[in-house]
């Protein structure tokens, strides 16, 4: 009888660790990691000067500037209206509230190409809304403004769905306490509610921004796609690929990937900070 058990330990209580982890890693490598690594290798391949050459091309620069700029504006719009809509859905009762609550996810469910052509038809100069705006001298479709419109559509649910659960979990006692201490409703909102909701709002903003930078389907219909005016970075990647300019496409992709990984890191840090600040979820 062996008294030392360490030589032959019993297997883990729950079976299947090796096979599921192995499958997960293999699948992830095959479909995600190896394909993504091509961007890195191709970028190294073209060398610093080749990479720099692509990025200093004015057309590339404008496309990147446009993608990041419009995504930033759209995410800001969504931060404001997303917070308002989340507040409305959590705090108020009004006819059709549940329907609206469900409809907020429409941009997640609606294929981007459908959203793209619908928004274009809506905001074109002869469209339902576009014609009204046209009368006011505003042109939306086929301009950078149109891109913002498409990205607002795409990004809205990220903000609402990030903020909504936090607003639902807010302790009403705290608001009552603030009121009994003499705070006006506005004070309570700006000093008590908003700070509590801020991390989730930033998370939603970051998610909407990240999605907006890479968005393609809903944008290309409404953008007009004029080089150096309304041509977004993802479209330029497609154009370079169609020209068989793999290096040109890859350099833009590499930069966008690098920035979105930084964004991902920022979101993770934000969420970790929030967990620390509020002492667990």
């Amino acid at each position: 009888m062996s008294v030392l058990a360490s030589a032959r330990r019993p297997a883990r209580v729950i079976p299947g660790f090796g096979i599921t982890l192995g499958f997960t890693l293999a699948y992830l490598s095959l479909f995600v990691l190896i394909p993504l690594s091509t961007v890195a290798f191709k970028t190294i391949d073209m060398g610093w000067s080749g990479f720099w050459g692509v990025l200093t091309d004015p057309r590339t620069q404008h496309a990147l500037y446009l993608s990041f700029g419009t995504a930033l504006i759209a995410a800001l719009v969504n931060a404001v209206f997303g917070l308002l809509i989340a507040w409305m859905l959590v705090r108020y009762t009004f006819p059709g509230r549940r329907l609206i609550d469900a409809a907020v996810d429409l941009p997640f469910a609606l294929p981007t190409a459908v959203a793209g052509i619908a928004l274009t038809a809506l905001y074109a100069d002869n469209g339902w809304i576009g014609s009204i705006l046209h009368g006011l001298g505003l042109k939306v479709a086929y301009t950078p403004v149109g891109i913002v419109v498409a990205l607002v559509f795409i990004g809205l649910p990220f903000v609402v769905r990030s903020v909504q659960p936090v607003l639902e979990d807010l302790n009403l006692d705290v608001e009552e306490a603030a009121a009994t201490l003499g705070a006006t409703r506005w004070h309570t909102f700006s000093r008590v509610i908003l700070p509590a909701a801020l991390p989730s709002l930033l998370t939603g903003f970051a998610l909407a921004f990240a999605r907006g930078v890479g968005e393609y389907g809903s944008v290309i219909f409404i953008a007009g796609n004029l080089p150096k005016v309304s041509e977004i970075a993802p479209l330029l990647i497609v154009i370079r690929l169609e020209e068989f300019n793999y290096a040109g496409a890859t350099a833009i992709a590499a930069l966008m990937l690098a920035i979105s990984f930084l964004g991902l890191l920022a979101i993770n840090l934000l969420q970790a900070w929030n967990r620390r600040r509020t002492g667990g979820e």
Partner: peptide, 12 residues
């Protein structure tokens, strides 16, 4: 019960 694996020792 066998739900944990001890580092050393014996259970009979």
């Amino acid at each position: 019960a066998g739900l944990e694996s001890p580092t050393s020792g014996a259970i009979l």
